[in-house]
Computed example of a mutant assay.
Amino acid sequence: MSESSKAARNRQLALHGFTEFAAGNIDVLRTLLHEDFIEHSPENPSGREAFIAFIAEAPVARARLDLKRVIADDDHVVMHYHMATDDDPRGIAVVDIWRMIDGQIVEHWDVVQPVPEAAQIPYGMF
C-alpha cells in the first residue's frame, strides 16, 4: 500500500469513527481502538476497555462536536474540532492526534484549549 493510500485509508477510518462518536455511538470505539491502545493525556487511562469506560463518562460524550479539519500523514491522523455544550456554548478547541496501525488507533495525544471571548481572538479559533 502506498503512503498516500495508507493516509487516505486512515483518514477515512478516523473520520467514520469521529462521525459515529459525535452522533452518540460510543461503541464504535470497540472496533476503532486497539486492545493495547496507549493514551498520552494526563489522567486518561490507556487500554481499550478502560479508555472507553472513561470516555463514556467524560463531557465529550455529551457535547456537540463540530469537525473543522482532518489531516492525514502515513500512520497519523489529526482532527481539529470545536466541542461545545448548552452550558458552555463557547466551548473548547480540540486537536486530537491519532497513530493508526492496521486500521486501528494504537496511540492518542491531544491539545485542548478553552475558546476565549471573540474580542480576544480577532481572527477566530477555527
Rank of each mutant, 00 (worst) to 15 (best):
E117C: 03
H108W: 08
I71P: 01
I52L: 04
T31F: 00
P45V: 10
D96M: 04
P45S: 11
E35M: 01
G24I: 07
D88E: 14
D66K: 13
V78A: 11
D27L: 03
H34Y: 04
L13P: 00
A63H: 14
P89G: 07
E39L: 06
T19S: 15
R11M: 04
A8Q: 13
H16P: 01
R11D: 01
W109A: 01
H34W: 00
D102R: 10
E20Q: 15
D73S: 10
L29K: 05
I26Q: 05
G124Q: 13
Q12M: 03
G47C: 07
D75M: 01
L13R: 03
Q113M: 11
V70Q: 05
S5C: 07
M79F: 08
S5Y: 11
A118D: 14
F126E: 15
D27K: 09
A58C: 11
V106Q: 08
D73K: 05
A56T: 07
E20V: 06
M100D: 01
A14G: 03
L13K: 03
H80N: 10
D86Y: 04
E49T: 08
M100G: 00
E39C: 07
H34D: 13
I105T: 03
H16L: 09
F51H: 02
R11Y: 04
P114I: 07
A72H: 09
E117I: 05
E43L: 06
A23F: 10
V60Y: 02
R64V: 13
F54T: 03
I38W: 06
P114S: 15
T85W: 13
R69W: 10
